[in-house]
Simulated assay, not measured.
Amino acid sequence: METRPFINTTERLAEVVAEARHENGWTQAELARRAGVGRQFISDLEGNHPRAEIGKVLAVLQTLGLSPRAVPVRPDYEFDADGQLKEQFRG
Rank of each mutant, 00 (worst) to 15 (best):
Q40S: 07
L61G: 09
L61M: 12
T27F: 10
R34I: 10
P50L: 04
T63G: 07
S43V: 12
G38T: 15
V60C: 05
L45C: 09
I42T: 13
I42Y: 07
W26M: 07
T10N: 09
N24W: 12
N24C: 12
Q28R: 01
A52S: 07
L58P: 08
G36F: 04
A29H: 10
Q28A: 11
I42W: 05
A18P: 03
R33M: 04
T27P: 14
G38N: 12
R39G: 00
V57H: 07
R12M: 12
S43D: 06
N8A: 10
N48W: 00
G36T: 04
R39T: 10
V37I: 14
N48H: 05
L45T: 07
H49Q: 07
S43G: 14
E19T: 04
H22F: 03
E15R: 09
L64V: 09
A52M: 02
V37K: 15
Q40P: 02
S43H: 12
A32P: 00
G47P: 04
L64Q: 13
E23V: 10
R33E: 08
T63K: 03
Q62C: 10
N8S: 13
G38A: 10
L45S: 09
Q28P: 08
E15F: 07
R34P: 05
A18I: 03
A18V: 05
V17E: 08
W26C: 06
F41T: 12
W26R: 00
Q40T: 15
R39S: 00
L61F: 09
V37M: 11
T27R: 04
L64E: 15
T27N: 13
N24P: 05
I54K: 15
A14V: 00
R33L: 09
E53H: 08
T9M: 02
V17N: 01
G38P: 10
V16R: 07
A18D: 06
S43T: 13
R34E: 08
A52R: 12
V37D: 02
H22R: 13
